[in-house]
Amino acid sequence: MKKLLLSLALSLSVLSATPAIAAAPAFSVSQMAQVKIKDLSFKEVMRQFYSGQMRPTSVNDEYIESMPNIGLGQVDSNGARIVALMHPMGLYDNAKGEPRYLVTIEKVIVYDESSEYCESCGSKADLYSFKRLNNGQFQLISRTPESVAFYDRWGTMNLQDNDIQKTIQLLGTNLVGSVFKSGYMTLGETNSWWTVLHLPENDFINVYALGDAGSDNDGQDDEDSPLYYNYEGIVKVMPENAAYYPIILTYKGIPPDDPERPNFVNKSFVMKFNPVKKVYETTSSFAAL
């Protein structure tokens, strides 16, 4: 996983990050505006967007039971089923300072009445942004075109509403979003990566990989070991007169002793969003930084 992340974020030629979801249909402001619901309760949201898919379900899992939940679709031949969870409401301001409401419906895989323990599969989520109308109804502003994947060791999403609200900021002249960190620990090694959430009002909501956020093997080797490493990737959004602000990714710390990886520590990389490819990328090489 770490070599893959580094190859995406720290290539000597063109550094690019693969978008989290596939190509989406054309966005339509007028079509979004046609969706209006009386409130943002679990009942109203699920009936609006998941009509005909909902099934009764019974789980015995603390995480799932901590939020409103319901089954989606049928149990497959392996006994797996999808359970939808509604996270607490997220309140934020758009680029004009107008209040918006973020609804997050997480989808987890359940086996034998517990969340699936699967390091590689993680969970998915549908995100919806609403504004409140004068009559008290809520009008859809934007949404993810399809479920967005959030990868986490325990099969549940790293993206939490509190984290979003703490890190909401301008990411462009007319764009707000969040830069957040995900990660996991396994066999004494900690790995993490940066992801960018875009909350536009003229396009679909989406998340994009930014790059490696750091790694260490504190649980494997002592600091005096030649194999010890511990580094972090620090992000800084650089406001300028542009639709998408550049994000500087700087690495500090002790790099791993790995000849397959370039010497990236104590160097910075300017990551820019490519709206055509829908990726964050940079053409800067190490020698130019």
Rank of each mutant, 00 (worst) to 15 (best):
Q165S: 02
L171T: 01
F130R: 04
K181D: 02
T156L: 12
A149R: 10
S123C: 09
R153A: 08
A125L: 00
I105T: 09
T104C: 05
E116R: 14
E119W: 08
V110M: 12
S115Q: 10
K107C: 04
D161Q: 11
P145K: 14
E146W: 07
F180A: 11
V179M: 14
L159F: 09
L171M: 11
G172Q: 03
E116K: 13
I168S: 10
F180N: 12
V110D: 02
K131R: 11
Q169E: 01
K107F: 11
G155M: 11
T156H: 14
V176R: 05
V110E: 03
T156G: 13
S129T: 13
T173Y: 12
L159A: 04
Q165H: 02
I105V: 13
E119G: 10
T156E: 04
I168Y: 00
T173W: 08
V110H: 04
K107G: 05
I105G: 00
E146F: 06
V176D: 00
C118M: 15
S147M: 15
N135P: 01
R143V: 04
D112N: 15
F138C: 03
T104N: 10
Q160M: 08
S142V: 09
M157H: 04
D112M: 14
Y128G: 06
T167L: 11
K107N: 12
S147C: 02
Q165I: 09
E116W: 09
F130N: 02
Q165M: 13
F180P: 02
Y111N: 13
L171Y: 04
K107S: 12
D126N: 02
C118S: 15
C121R: 13
D161R: 15
E119L: 14
I141Y: 05
D126I: 05
L170E: 03
V179K: 07
A149H: 14
S147L: 15
V148I: 01
I168D: 09
R143E: 03
V110Q: 02
I164N: 04
V103M: 07
R132E: 04
I105R: 01
C118Y: 11
V103F: 05
D152W: 13
N174V: 09
Q139P: 03
T144S: 04
T104G: 02
D126R: 01
L133S: 07
N158D: 07
Q139N: 05
A149T: 08
W154Y: 14
V110T: 13
L171R: 02
D126T: 00
E119R: 14
L140F: 06
L171K: 05
V108E: 07
L133E: 03
N162C: 15
N162L: 14
V148A: 10
D163Q: 11
R132Y: 03
Q137R: 00
S114W: 08
K124N: 07
F138K: 01
Q137I: 03
N158L: 06
Y117V: 02
E119Y: 03
R132P: 00
E106H: 09
S123R: 10
I109W: 06
Q160D: 11
V110L: 08
C121E: 12
R153M: 06
S120W: 09
D112T: 10
G122I: 04
S123D: 00
S142N: 07
V108T: 06
W154N: 15
N134R: 03
D152N: 13
D161S: 15
Q139L: 07
N135E: 01
D112F: 12
V176Y: 06
F130M: 07
E106W: 05
E119A: 14
T167I: 08
D112K: 15
N135R: 05
N134Q: 09
G172M: 00
L171Q: 01
G155C: 08
